[in-house]
Design a binder for these strands. Structure first.
Length: 137
DNA sequence: GCCAACGTTGGC
DNA sequence: GCCAACGTTGGC
């Protein structure tokens, strides 16, 4: 079981959209590093759902329901999509600001690699963010 | 709206 | 294979 974090611009596709849809395909990734992370996702893996933009924060937990397959938005077989579904909303969203202030999260990709949209998290970092959001699995 | 960071593209 | 130009992301 691995833990991940994905970013979405809420004006494009928000957590609420995911809850409304019940499930979605995570497609359109056009960055090799993010793509490699998508390919490494396994069914049942936990995915923190992060909103970028005006109010950058982690808002919920999603779960991988289908592992990597050809991205239907392109014929180019370099790119893949996965399916995720909402698992749990955080009691309190965890703002980027709070993550930055937490010493133990100083080294996560969200901070070190601002532009990466799909990244792995250690279980420790994942648990810590959940605790900051007053949420337990 | 600006700008820093950084991935990608294309000329050589 | 280098590197400058360019485009995009995302925080502020």
């Amino acid at each position: 079981m691995s833990c991940w974090l994905v970013k979405s611009e809420p004006s494009a596709y928000s957590w609420d959209d995911l809850v409304r849809d019940g499930k979605t395909l995570w497609d359109g990734v056009r960055n090799y590093q993010a793509r490699n992370n998508l390919k490494a996702m396994k069914k049942g893996d936990l995915v923190l759902y992060y909103h970028s933009g005006a109010a950058p924060e982690v808002v919920g937990i999603a779960k991988v329901v289908k592992e990597a397959y050809q991205d239907p938005t392109t014929d180019d077989d370099r790119w893949v999509a996965v399916d995720i579904k909402p698992a749990k909303v955080l009691k309190k969203p965890v703002p980027l600001d709070g993550i930055k202030k937490e010493k133990r999260l100083r080294n996560i990709a969200l901070i070190k690699q601002g532009r990466l949209s799909v990244m792995p998290l250690t279980k420790e970092a994942y648990d810590l963010i959940l605790r900051m959001g007053s949420t337990s699995e």
